[in-house]
């Protein structure tokens, strides 16, 4: 359930914090750019990064597919009102920012990203927020996605077995009820184990 590519590349080896910092810089620098040349160079560099990850890297360009029609509409509208250069600047900038951000998700494990996230929460800790609850909630969330998806499939199968047609939104109320019931049980189990673990420091 993640975009991570299990392989070794130069981009995998860079620390997550450094990659995120570079992304932030690139976003800030690229946002005000109005020159066709710079945008084209940025697109070329970005595609180069994907190519350097090998065939599996280039295959990840498929992540743009759901955006295709919207991108096309934006490009067409911009072309029609402002001209080709403006349309390319807009489209190119959008592509670069989305692809660079995706490249980080593809080459950084979720636990590395989480370590950066927990570090970013440090100021909250100073304010007295119990950030271990946030870390605990994240791991619960990741653990229970497959459970809830299996609930959903079971309800869909039962709905079809009863001859249910396309109105399968009818499973949503029972799905929510099951989720809330399970949440009560999990909360009891957590309480029985002495509550959410506290930070040791």
């Amino acid at each position: 359930m993640s975009l991570y590519l299990a392989q070794i590349s130069w981009l995998h080896r860079l620390p997550a914090g450094l990659k995120l910092f570079c992304l932030a810089i690139a976003t800030v620098l690229l946002y005000p750019v109005k020159e066709v040349g710079i945008i084209s160079l940025a697109v070329a560099v970005t595609l180069g990064i994907y190519a350097s990850l090998g065939r599996s890297g280039l295959a990840q360009l498929k992540l743009l597919k759901p955006l295709f029609w919207m991108m096309l509409a934006i490009f067409a509208l911009q072309y029609w009102t402002m001209g080709l250069a403006e349309a390319w600047i807009l489209l190119g900038r959008m592509l670069v920012l989305i692809l660079l951000a995706n490249a980080i998700s593809m080459t950084t494990r979720m636990d590395e990203m989480n370590a950066v996230f927990q570090f970013l929460l440090t100021p909250l800790r100073w304010l007295g927020v119990q950030t271990q609850r946030i870390a605990f909630a994240l791991s619960l969330l990741i653990r229970f996605v497959p459970v809830l998806v299996s609930f959903m499939h079971a309800l869909l199968a039962a709905w079809r077995a009863r001859g249910g047609q396309r109105r399968y939104w009818q499973i949503i109320a029972p799905l929510v009820v099951q989720a809330l019931r399970m949440s009560d049980q999990v909360a009891e189990a957590v309480a029985a184990r002495g509550g959410i673990p506290k930070i040791k420091n």
Binding site: R133, L138, V147, A179, S183, V186, A191
Partner: peptide
Amino acid sequence: KDKQVVQIAIFAALLAAL
């Protein structure tokens, strides 16, 4: 509080399932 944390997490997982 713990109960609410669990509920928040499981509802987020429900959003994913939806």
